[in-house]
């Protein structure tokens, strides 16, 4: 396990991330607790026509100049993104894998939190 993962979440906020920088307001431990469901609730279209599953993701999945966005939205590539992100809180890859560190600058916290609350609903009652 890397040093980053071992650190207490609060230390991550204060030490690794400077206050005043974009991610200073994002609890770095957030995606240790909840999954990212942005792939079901959000889509971004870039000026160029590229389709991006998250506003800061580096992954371009499809192009509206080539395909209708709904074909891209239901594609295997998009589904892979959704599945990967739904495991973020279990695997915490955003803390160690350079390909996914952009998640530490997440700007979709409110939407993901709202979705997580919906997902949690009922489970606690079952318990």
């Amino acid at each position: 396990m890397s040093d980053l993962v071992k650190k207490h979440p609060q230390e991550l906020v204060l030490d690794e991330v400077r206050i005043g920088v974009a991610n200073g307001d994002v609890p770095a431990n957030l995606y240790s607790e909840i999954p990212c469901t942005i792939g079901y609730s959000y889509i971004r279209f870039e000026v160029s026509g590229n389709i991006v599953p998250c506003c800061i993701a580096k992954h371009r999945i499809g192009d509206i100049k080539k395909n209708d966005w709904r074909e891209v939205w239901h594609s295997g590539a998009y589904e892979s993104f959704r599945r990967k992100m739904s495991r973020i809180h279990l695997e915490r890859f955003h803390l160690v894998d350079p390909e996914w560190t952009f998640c530490q600058q997440c700007s979709h916290v409110p939407l993901n939190q709202a979705n997580a609350d919906l997902l949690r609903k009922g489970r606690e009652e079952e318990k």
Binding site: Y40, S41, Y42, I43, F45, N115
Partner: peptide
Amino acid sequence: IKTQNTFSGLFEVHI
């Protein structure tokens, strides 16, 4: 969100 409905359920769109 619980059923992972991609046939609606889209909530925010950024263009």
